[in-house]
Design a protein around this nucleic acid. Sequence first.
DNA 1: ACCTGAACACCGTTCAAGT
DNA 2: ACCTGAACACCGTTCAAGT
Lengths: 250, 250
Amino acid sequence: MQPAGPPADIPTPPWRASKKRPTARQPLSAEAVLDTALRIVDRDGLDGISMRRVAQELGTGAASLYAYFANKDELLEQLLDRVIGDIPLPSAEAADWIAEVKESCWESRAVFVAHRDLVKVARANLPVGPNSLRYTEAMLAVLRGAGIPDRVAAWGMDQLSLVIVADAIEVSIHISRGQQTEADAAPWLAEVSGYYANLPQDRFPNLVAMAPVMIEGSGDERFAFAIDLMVDGLARYVGSDGPNSGQVAA
Amino acid sequence: MQPAGPPADIPTPPWRASKKRPTARQPLSAEAVLDTALRIVDRDGLDGISMRRVAQELGTGAASLYAYFANKDELLEQLLDRVIGDIPLPSAEAADWIAEVKESCWESRAVFVAHRDLVKVARANLPVGPNSLRYTEAMLAVLRGAGIPDRVAAWGMDQLSLVIVADAIEVSIHISRGQQTEADAAPWLAEVSGYYANLPQDRFPNLVAMAPVMIEGSGDERFAFAIDLMVDGLARYVGSDGPNSGQVAA
DNA sequence: ACCTGAACACCGTTCAAGT
DNA sequence: ACCTGAACACCGTTCAAGT
């Protein structure tokens, strides 16, 4: 009697293989859903992700996802927190706390940029996800350890993440515009600069004069400028007793 | 013989009036489309706007809008520029340029917040719309007039608008969450603070200790902190020769 | 008890067919 | 030449009906 299926050494016929999903069917779980969602975001960006598409790649229907996530927003929020888990934690033991904070800003930006425009879902300022909490704790340890007043530490962290997220979004927009490298972006920037240069001189004297400067500087240089501005500003609060009481040295 | 329509002093029957659109049908134009779109955004927010809905309120089909706008994104971009036209231009003749710049930041925020979450569509940093150009020109005049180097002026404006937009988005999120006033937001904030306070003390010593501070400060206080940090930071570049060459006084 | 197919109420955009 | 109804290819979310 023949066995029901073909022996193991005979290749599965292609029309049979094509019906199988590439990965063995794992039982559905929040973890598995996030894995799949992240794969889609990395491949197609935020516009490419939908509840239906995630479900399809898991071999089920969109409705099944609602057992694990209240809605699409919650799924994306948890996905972002997962990615935040890839950011190395800054150390409060670092010799130079200013360098440590700046370094962490660069690392955060790198992690966000590595996942297309997922960072666009970053919204509210108060961290809630487990990885966001861990990161916040570590950064607060550095800032408080440096002698920055609590209120300045809290508000300053807020501003720092705001700048990082905004910058990462901008980079991700350039990337999805097909401008992976600085060189790719050059033609578009030159066009904008030319547009400024040809504005009516009498009504736009400053824009005309600054046409070349407006597009100057790589993304990295601009990010460095912003981070330095912020962190150096925060450093001036060391040992003071807060943002509104003790006047910061002028 | 009776005239075809009723005399002017007899009210139009309700079933006839109800068939009329509330406003007289104006021929379609980019202007008219933007008027309608802004009305919808102000009423229902960004989630409430769609090409179909805008068209419907204009008494036509969605396809007709594509004669004036390449797509929805372009429509929203022009809509934002229109709103930016409501921001008063800062004056380069002001006695205290620092106060003038800060004042303009507050005015910008107010205009954005007045239109729900429309500000969410603000993206790229280089201004292109006519009103964005006018505003940029005026702000550059102030910064250059104050003696800030061109490159710092360009990058600084960038950062300033980034902070304003991010803050306005946050305020708009609070508002759409039904927290119009600071008092409305209080219960939610207290909940988050309580969550921080109950985190495991050994792994989150700083968050636990700072639980009350994390939610401290009104939106206005936090915005003031951010703007002061930025503008005061920029002021330190007055008379220097740029961000990366002449070292800023420490 | 858990899962899901099918339905509901929408989308942005295109284009053939009308005036 | 201009405009638009209808179609295309999607959405997020719900829920009745199945196992």
